[in-house]
Nucleic acid binder design. Structure first.
Lengths: 223, 223
DNA sequence: GGGGCAAGTGAGCGTACACTTACCGGGACT
DNA sequence: AGTCCCGGTAAGTGTACGCTCACTTGCCCC
């Protein structure tokens, strides 16, 4: 195939590998397959990555960074903490069309935890993700949109669990998954739980404006 | 090794395979390894299971049934819907010592979704699980312990997502996972969210007692 | 226009794995 | 006592996979 500069080839290999690892998992995706899909021969892979595992880890890291970048970008234009949180919930990288396929690599990696290197890369990613989500929750709490009954840290863990659980289950294509008979979706429920209904939001918005001078407060929620 | 009746050998093979599949995943756990760990030779495996895949699917089904049995047993002695739900949340098979290892088989299976047979077995298990949890939520709602703001079905999906998300993340052994600085755990938060605080519970308990006289609102069981 | 160098290839190597073949032996019934 | 079922074994077979070796091709700069 056509000659490509190293950096571009490397990127292309990662893209191709992402697709195959996501589809078939780490163990089942073969290097020969990846090479063929990238329209090169196997040794090319080994010129850019010292081993299949290294390729996989590079992919985990890239996917992790890209996910975060995408997420931040989605929030970027929303200064209002409530809207930011709403987008955070809606733009679950596991759910969005763009992220879903890519993010499956991360989920696949979670079954390869017997390898310490993969485990480390994964744990790092999760920590970064938790930190980011927790930061958003803090902002929403400080603005009075989210109750301070539960700490931002634990709330962030729950959001991550929800997102991961959804993302792990979604590819099974179970009819009626994550929604009820009347078509209500979990995302909407989570929004409701986190942010309350619209009247309450309006109220909080007023509080928020008022409080811009003062200090802190909260909202309450129960299922 | 010592001669064993077929049914016992089959059971022992499943036990052994469960451990290895959970540890290493489907693709990495080899039949030779399983045989060695069970202290027999490979052909014995093939006498009881027609292929590695069949063994795996048998294991998925058994683990699924066992999980449900264990869960029901844990609830059995608690007629009070609130306590039942509390145990349901606490006895997450992904978390409990007894279930955690076994249940990793299910999580591992979720990365093998490119195989239609494995996918089907898995989807079935999830449907059964959702039905069961939803049934418990309905009971708790009818008894007034859980708000009817959200349908039982969607609430059950959220509980499953939370449990799965937790279960997928837990083996990564991330410091501070699923708890905050002050040691509050997600399980406690979920209990709070679902069942509210104790005063509200007491009130609901009174309602429940009153209503028990009128008609008959009580325990549920699904296949 | 030719030297140097990075990108690329064809053809394997060793190994590990799922699965099989051909045979052994203990014990329960006739 | 014989036989035959059935749980067990030793020793493979074919294949697919991760990875490498020895070599070629095209681009850039002088």
């Amino acid at each position: 195939m056509s000659r490509l500069p190293a950096t571009e080839r490397r990127k292309q290999l990662l893209d191709t590998a992402a697709r195959l690892f996501a589809e078939r998992g780490y163990a089942r995706a073969t290097t020969a397959e990846i090479a063929r899909a990238a329209q090169v021969t196997e040794p090319i892979i080994y010129r850019h990555f010292s081993s299949k595992k290294e390729l996989f880890i590079a992919l985990i890291n890239r996917t992790g960074e890209e996910t975060l970048r995408l997420w931040k970008q989605q929030l970027h234009k929303a200064p209002d903490p409530a809207e930011r949180l709403r987008r955070l919930i809606g733009a679950n990288p596991l759910v969005s069309n763009r992220g879903r396929g890519a993010y499956r690599v991360i989920v696949q990696a979670m079954t390869e935890i017997s390898d310490p290197d993969i485990l480390a890369a994964l744990a790092h990613h999760i920590r970064v993700l938790h930190e980011f989500v927790a930061g958003e929750v803090v902002a929403a709490q400080e603005a009075g949109f989210v109750s301070e009954r539960f700490s931002a840290s634990i709330t962030a863990w729950m959001l991550l669990h929800l997102g991961l659980g959804y993302g792990v289950l979604a590819p099974l294509d179970i009819p009626g998954h994550a929604q009820d008979e009347s078509g209500v979706r979990v995302r909407e429920v989570i929004e409701q739980l986190m942010l309350g209904d619209s009247t309450r939001q309006a109220e909080n918005l007023r509080k928020h404006a008022r409080r811009a001078a003062e200090d802190r407060g909260d909202a309450e929620d129960a299922a």
